[in-house]
Computed example of a mutant assay.
Amino acid sequence: MSYKTLLVHIDDSRRSDTRVAVALDLAQRWDAHLIGLYAVSGDFDRPFFRTHEDIAALLAAQAEVRRQRARDTFLVAGERAGRAVEWRAPAGPPVGITTLHARHADLLVLGQPDPLDAAAYVDEHFVGDVVLGAGRPALVIPRAGAVPTLGENVLIAWDGSREASRAIADALPLLQRARFVGIDVVKSTDDENTGPGAIDVAAWLAAHGIRASFSTTARHGIAGAGATLLNRVSDLHADLLVLGAYGHSRVRERVWGGVTRTMLESMTVPVLMGH
């Protein structure tokens, strides 16, 4: 198995170049076609600005300069990497256009929300809405830190759910190239029924040529499963976490499961999310 079409989200944030570098490396691994999708906040088009044409024109001109700079940076990065890449910057609401284009890709490369970088803001629930709406696996890159390796030492979070099963299947191309794969079940101290599932997952992965170990980790006290997983990632020096994404929509908000929310807020390594 392999990923043949990758899509990386590009914006004006300071981490956009890191996402592109990761995506180019993955494209090199699988000789994949890489699409750079530029999608940024459209706040300058709010009704307030439309009533002040001079302000709207100035903001639109500045946005065009940033778009052109992002395009040139992406194309130069592709050329330096020796990869033929495709640039897209469609007009429209960023969540909608990203979700639409993502449905024609094998893997998405997105960035963790960064409240300290105004240029990283695209939409209030951008990453979550795309992950849940696209139906495609998403590799979410942390908002800080280098990504020197990706997929050499992989930790799988397993809870027996449909989402977790989907995430593992989506991660197979990465798992088949990993040096070490671990399956971890986070359980409360009074839960005795989660271990056997990890054995079955390890057997299924073995049928795909992937040798995986399995373990259970007790969740003590008030620590949530997400925090416990982050500790396991640190203890095992994992460079990728594979995780099922949980959530559902309400009329005006996205409601996340606790583990998914924790990862989107506090991830320390890239996380491959499947839904």
Results as ranks from 00 to 15, higher is better:
Gly82Pro: 12
Gly82Met: 06
Gly82Arg: 09
Arg83Met: 06
Arg83Asp: 10
Arg83Pro: 04
Ala84Asn: 09
Ala84Leu: 10
Ala84Met: 07
Ala84His: 13
Ala84Val: 14
Val85His: 06
Val85Thr: 15
Val85Trp: 05
Glu86Met: 09
Glu86Tyr: 14
Trp87Leu: 04
Trp87Cys: 08
Arg88Pro: 09
Ala89Ser: 15
Ala89Gly: 09
Pro90Asp: 03
Pro90Ser: 02
Gly92Gln: 03
Pro93Gln: 15
Val95Met: 01
Val95Glu: 03
Gly96Gln: 14
Ile97Glu: 09
Ile97Tyr: 01
Ile97Lys: 08
Thr98Asp: 02
Thr99Gly: 15
Thr99Ile: 03
Leu100His: 15
Leu100Arg: 15
His101Thr: 05
His101Lys: 00
Ala102Pro: 07
Arg103Val: 01
His104Trp: 06
Ala105Tyr: 05
Ala105Gln: 13
Ala105Glu: 11
Leu107Val: 11
Leu108Tyr: 10
Val109Tyr: 07
Val109Arg: 10
Gly111His: 04
Gln112Cys: 05
Pro113Trp: 02
Pro113Val: 06
Pro113Ala: 09
Asp114Gly: 10
Asp114Thr: 03
Pro115Glu: 08
Pro115Tyr: 00
Pro115Ile: 02
Pro115Asn: 01
Pro115His: 03
Leu116Glu: 11
Leu116Ala: 12
Asp117Val: 09
Ala118His: 12
Ala118Glu: 15
Ala118Val: 14
Ala118Tyr: 06
Ala119Arg: 06
Ala119Val: 00
Ala120Val: 02
Ala120Gly: 13
Val122Leu: 05
Val122Gln: 09
Asp123Val: 01
Asp123Pro: 08
Asp123Ser: 15
Glu124Cys: 01
Glu124Met: 06
Glu124Trp: 01
Val127Trp: 02
Val127Leu: 05
Gly128Arg: 01
Gly128Gln: 10
Gly128Glu: 15
Asp129Tyr: 01
Asp129Phe: 00
Val130Thr: 09
Val130Lys: 11
Val131Asn: 06
Leu132Asn: 12
Gly133Ser: 11
Gly133Val: 01
Gly135Ala: 07
Gly135Cys: 10
Arg136Asp: 02
Arg136Ala: 01
Pro137Phe: 00
Ala138Asn: 13
Ala138Gly: 12
Leu139Thr: 09
Val140Leu: 04
Val140Gln: 06
Ile141Arg: 04
Ile141Phe: 12
Ile141Thr: 08
Ile141Ala: 05
Pro142Tyr: 00
Pro142Ala: 05
Arg143Gly: 14
Arg143Met: 03
Gly145Thr: 04
Ala146Arg: 07
Val147Gly: 08
Val147Arg: 00
Val147Pro: 08
Pro148Tyr: 07
Pro148Ser: 08
Thr149Glu: 14
Thr149Tyr: 07
Thr149Ile: 03
Leu150Asn: 12
Leu150Pro: 14
Leu150Lys: 12
Gly151His: 03
Glu152Ala: 15
Glu152Leu: 08
Asn153Val: 03
Asn153Tyr: 02
Val154Phe: 05
Val154Thr: 07
Leu155Lys: 10
Leu155Thr: 15
Ile156Thr: 12
Ile156Lys: 11
Ala157Gly: 13
Ala157Glu: 04
Ala157Ser: 12
Ala157Pro: 04
Trp158Ile: 11
Asp159Ser: 12
Asp159Val: 11
Gly160Tyr: 08
Gly160Ser: 07
Gly160Phe: 09
Gly160His: 08
Ser161Gly: 12
Ser161Asn: 13
Arg162Ala: 14
Glu163Val: 06
Glu163Pro: 06
Glu163Lys: 05
Ala164Asn: 13
Ser165Leu: 13
Ser165Trp: 00
Arg166Glu: 13
Arg166Ile: 14
